[in-house]
Design a protein around this nucleic acid. Structure first.
Lengths: 133, 133
DNA sequence: ATAGTATTTGATAATGATTATCATTATAAT
DNA sequence: ATTATAATGATAATCATTATCAAATACTAT
């Protein structure tokens, strides 16, 4: 049976508040200020659990450790190839619907049952675009 | 200056021929039959190089090591949550175009310059769907 | 072909991220 | 309050990948 823990609550709340996508270690370092007795294993453990429950999203990056996202609204990600930054792109309901429809249609090809998707756009973010000129 | 090596050629050709998406280790073990002197570092090294050149695609999986894909035609992936299998979903030209358009439109929100995308559909594959009943 | 050089290889050590272990502590049920 | 169960934190262990480096190989200019 699942038990409450203030560590898990802290991790989830903090992730919901922030709009970046920290690594487990980044989150650990930041939270250690609020709760000095926090251990890094606890952070990894709870992040994994929260991901399984669907309360947190694990983002695989092209290089470097996983990032975590407390935003569970339907959205997609942009990853900058230059600076590695990951940004949310929020979709309108009709966009989500259209995208879901398309993906389901594609999945018919292989007779699979779709239950989710993971879309990442790559390129240059606003900042890095400017720096290049 | 880039030099030819029979190891790299073997790796690339083998990846082009197979339609699965092997891990570096799987590929290494398989190729070791054809070329017993092959070293695993050579496989990792060449796979990374080929990915940078755009001749091979690195697929991040939700758990487990990276998979590699020699198919550079525009396509998306399906990952089965049950068995972990990854399958290609090939798109028609018009589907690719529509998808690209949509993604570019989304990216405008954050003023980013798009140069690629990575789409994975998750769910149950044909086989696992059957097993469940 | 030959010598010279630059790159690649294979073996293995090192690293980085994540998970496993386990004694202690906190939460929940009786 | 007692007991049972799950979570924690410290740290060891694991897994995938990258770095190192001497030896082998590919290319270039003679």
């Amino acid at each position: 049976m699942k038990k409450y823990s203030k560590q898990r609550e802290l991790i989830l709340n903090s992730l919901r508040k922030r709009k970046d996508h920290p690594t487990a270690e980044r989150l650990y370092l930041d939270l250690k200020n609020e709760m000095p007795e926090l251990g890094i294993a606890t952070v990894y453990r709870n992040l994994s659990d929260l991901c399984e429950e669907g309360q947190v999203i694990r983002i695989k990056t092209s290089s470097g450790p996983d990032r975590f996202d407390g935003n569970t609204m339907p959205h997609i990600h942009f990853e900058c190839k230059k600076c590695g930054d990951i940004v949310d792109i929020v979709l309108f309901e009709n966009e989500v619907k259209q995208l879901d429809n398309d993906l389901k249609k594609f999945a018919k090809q292989i007779s699979a049952e779709v239950d989710g998707s993971d879309i990442t756009i790559t390129g240059l973010c606003k900042k890095c675009k400017k720096k290049l000129r």
